[in-house]
Amino acid sequence: MDFNEFFYLINLTVYAFLIGSLLLGLHRKIMAKIQLRPGPPIIQYLLHTLKFYFKEITFPITAGNPLYIFMPILQIIVWLSALILAVKLESSLLIIIGLYVLQKIVEHGCGLSSGSPYGKLGGVRSVFSAAAEIPLFAVVSTVYIVTNSLIISDIVSYQQIHGPLILKLPISAFAFFILLVSKAPNSPFGIVKGKDIVSGYLTEHFGLLAGLIYIGDAIAYFVLLWLFIAIFLGISNIFLALPFMILITFIISIINGLTPLLAPHHSVMLQITIAIVVLLDLLHRVIFL
């Protein structure tokens, strides 16, 4: 790697972080407007991250080190590698899904390693909500059957010839969109961070570690939005994708602002229902097409 590439990577990382955190701020603003509050400024998420990064900390004596410290670092590692594999290299979709699955490990590990009962509950709920991954695999299989490849650049070039995939695979696109909704803050599927268990897996991660997790979350939001736009709309350029990202954030925040938090089993049942629908779609495509 030479310096040009290094600066490109740094730029990409900072760009993803800034756009992700601004979009999350926008998300919060729109939700506030829906609920007839003025709401915080759009840069609030960014300010939060910086504030937490410079805050004094003390580590709980119940924590299991070094896992406790490694988990926020892993969060950034996971989403940075997803960013590079997806945006820079346009590599296999399945690898990125695998990295997304590691996000569950981060949630579970954060919750468990702190030793707090709330964190543990958050971790157990994250295991429960693993049902959200099944539609994801079905989506991947459906995309593979249609395009005959899982490399993102191939999928994008397929769409330049045949038109966007969202018209051909509406059910899969819907399932992926539900995934985006469940990843956004304050979503109806956000049982992992529900306010009934204080803040779920983040309960005992504060100060610097919370700052690191926030950085990872911002990059994650950017990557997932980019993935949706690249796979189902066929736009892989990060600047051209920006208006679509804002549009999708707008839709997600309207959904999140209007719906209450579901109970854990309701959330899981809803996700399993979606999974069954997508699996039936997949089976139909395998047998008849």
């Binding site: 290094f6 926020p72 670092i73 590692i77 940075l80 590079i84 690191l212 950085i215």
Partner: peptide, 11 residues
């Protein structure tokens, strides 16, 4: 190595 570099330096 880039992926390892960023979070470790941050922490």
């Amino acid at each position: 190595f880039y992926i390892l570099f960023v979070p470790n330096i941050l922490y």
